[in-house]
């Protein structure tokens, strides 16, 4: 439900989604371009007063077609908003659980490769996303985009790139399970009928085996085991 139709010079069209931080709205700027207004919950904003700037700074330093551009700030009496570029597509969560999309091997290969390209880029800029999930990835059938840098941080602090690798593995498991019709009896490595290479790859991502050293190693292994 939308409680307002205008925010500054922006016209709010619909509610895109929400989380602990607040709510995201689809809106149009005065030129008619689609943007996202990310409205922060006052309580969360206050509680996280030492870290509110991270998303703004990190997005300011990123320039990638699959990452929303940081377009501005709205500080209004009715709320505090970040203005972000709108990325076309449907979240993987909606594709999996509302549209019941079954991800084929080629679809997983495309989405996985594009996600790894995004991860290689942000890690090269010293950024750890920290919250890669099926809710924060949108896909339009051709291109995958990574959203929500609210928990992202620069490397050298609390987070390291292996968190993104683990979360990437978790996303791959969601996609692999989209075609699973077997019984529920255990962990993914017991239930899914995967090749030994794929299983080892996913175990390394998830921290059950020796982790990967860097993104290049992850991508090389992914292409090796998911291209066949």
């Amino acid at each position: 439900m939308i409680f307002f139709r205008r925010a500054g010079c922006y016209t709010v069209e619909s509610r895109l989604g929400g989380g602990r931080y607040g709510v995201c709205y689809l809106a149009r700027d005065p030129e008619g371009r689609r943007v996202v207004l990310k409205k922060f919950r006052p309580k969360i904003w206050r509680e996280n007063s030492g870290g509110n700037h991270h998303e703004a700074v990190i997005l300011s330093g990123l320039d990638h077609p699959a990452i929303p551009e940081f377009l501005g700030v709205l500080n209004l009496p009715r709320g505090y908003f970040f203005i972000l570029e709108y990325k076309q597509g449907t979240t993987l969560k909606d594709l999996l659980f509302h549209r019941h999309t079954e991800f084929t091997e080629s679809m997983i290969l495309r989405v996985g490769t594009q996600l790894l390209d995004i991860l290689s880029y942000i890690h090269s800029r010293s950024v750890v996303h920290g919250d890669i999930s099926i809710s924060n990835i949108v896909d339009d059938g051709r291109q995958t985009a990574l959203l929500d840098f609210g928990l992202a941080r620069y490397t050298g602090g609390d987070l390291s790139v292996d968190l993104d690798h683990s979360c990437f593995g978790n996303v791959l498991l969601y996609l692999l399970y989209s075609r699973y019709r077997g019984k529920k009896f255990g962990a993914w490595y017991e239930e899914l009928d995967l090749s030994a290479g794929k299983t080892l790859f996913l175990k390394r991502l998830m921290g059950l085996e020796a982790p990967f050293c860097d993104d290049a190693e992850v991508k090389e292994a992914f292409l090796t085991f998911f291209s066949d």
């Binding site: 602990r20 809710s135 683990s166 529920k184």
Partner: peptide, 25 residues
């Protein structure tokens, strides 16, 4: 808590609701 549990199976990955995501929600 932000690292996903590496030992989950279909009871988690095929449940898309509020409790199935294990996310910040």
């Amino acid at each position: 808590r932000r690292y996903p549990n590496p030992n989950r199976g279909s009871s988690h990955y095929q449940k898309g609701g509020f409790f199935g995501m294990g996310s910040s929600f």
